[in-house]
Design a protein around this nucleic acid. Structure first.
Length: 337
DNA sequence: TTCTAGGTAGCTTTATGCTA
DNA sequence: TAGCATAAAGCTACCTAGAA
């Protein structure tokens, strides 16, 4: 059995004041005499009292917490974005409830419901759903609409016309990445793509195709390897293409897990990057810098994106009626030689 | 007039009691 | 047994009274 938690009433009794006076001391609001304040503060310090946040939220009809919902926390890209969010939210004296949905719409729905129940002040969400499927988009839209807290979309498809958001143009990014490979002299460029039911995957794939076509190059179906944006599958694809002698001179890995899986296969098969195969990665692999891997990449700054989204949310909380805000994050192509 | 501090309504949910 | 009313939880915000 735990001890009974101290309440504001107990502090008031011990300090011989009314609980409203204790509340004023705690919140540094209203008039409190110097002597009274010191007496209350002494009792608080000696008793280790901390206000009960649930009761405070109940009284204020709001919490000081925001919710962050991401589709895959194992992705370093989202981990970096979270750092950026946390930076801004900390500065604004707010807290974060973090939800990982594992790319599962059901989990996403649960997370949103839970955050609504917790009366969070705002939500940043990197959605799971594919907006090209009308019924799914409709469901997602109605769910977001039922949430009274302001919402900011993070890294959702760029044409999603809902709420505030920080977006990335996946088509444009992939297009310029592949164009850069072509400019560096490559004519045979393969791609390890993902499940094309997903809009992000399709956009990146479309960028790849357009870059080839605009450069007068044929799209060779035998150079299109369909995976699922996971390390394991990309590794398997990499291994089998190397072992079958089907490795193209250049390959575009369309997300960071795919890059990791493919490079792992190359290392195991003694395939030298930039000598035997040139890789253009979608996103930088920060954690792999120490290995000095030679790969080209499209770099985005997820931390800045997180900061941007959190800033947008804080502003929206302060000014609920301001016009909708949408920002596209920039990217740059980094060639390793 | 300004400062100080007590009193209390009200926030939401749940348990309990009362009545039909 | 169902349905409704009320109290309780901890805290804030507002109102008000009294002192200086």
């Amino acid at each position: 059995m735990g001890e009974k938690l101290l309440t504001i009433e107990d502090i008031a009794q011990a300090a011989n004041v009314a609980k409203s006076t204790v509340s004023r001391v705690l919140n540094n609001s209203g008039y409190v005499g110097k002597e009274t304040r010191e007496r209350v503060e002494k009792v608080i310090a000696e008793s280790n009292y901390t206000p009960w946040v649930t009761a405070r939220n109940l009284s204020k009809q709001m919490s000081n917490t925001i919710g962050v919902v991401v589709s895959e926390i194992t992705n370093p890209y989202f981990a970096r974005a979270f750092e950026g969010i946390s930076e801004v939210i900390d500065k604004n004296d707010m807290n974060i409830i973090f939800c990982n949905t594992d790319r599962t719409p059901d989990k996403e729905e649960q997370a949103l419901r839970m955050l609504q129940e917790k009366r969070v002040r705002g939500i940043i969400i990197s959605p799971v759903i594919d907006y090209d499927v009308p019924e799914k988009a409709k469901l997602f839209r109605s769910q977001l609409e039922s949430i009274s807290a302001p919402t900011v979309l993070l890294d959702a498809p760029v044409d999603l016309d809902l709420w505030d958001g920080v977006f990335f143009d996946n088509f444009d990014g992939a297009y310029h990445a592949v164009k850069a490979m072509i400019s560096s002299g490559h004519r045979q460029i393969g791609i390890i793509t993902g499940d094309r039911k997903n809009k992000v995957v399709r956009e990146r794939h479309r960028g790849y195709i357009k870059a080839l076509k605009d450069s007068g190059l044929k799209v060779d179906p035998s150079l299109v390897f369909v995976g699922d944006y996971t390390v394991e599958t990309a590794y398997r694809i990499g291994k089998s293409m190397i072992q079958a002698g089907m490795l193209p001179p250049a390959i575009f890995t369309a997300n960071n897990f795919t890059t990791i899986g493919f490079i792992k296969a190359c290392i195991e098969e003694k395939v030298e990057l930039e000598k035997d195969v040139s890789v253009m990665a979608f996103d930088k692999l920060d954690e792999y810098d120490i290995f000095g891997l030679k790969y080209n990449r499209l770099e985005r700054d997820p931390r800045a994106m997180g900061r941007m989204a959190a800033g947008m949310l804080v502003t929206r909380i302060q000014y609920p009626d301001m016009p909708r805000s949408r920002k596209i994050i920039p990217s740059k192509i980094v060639m390793c030689r």
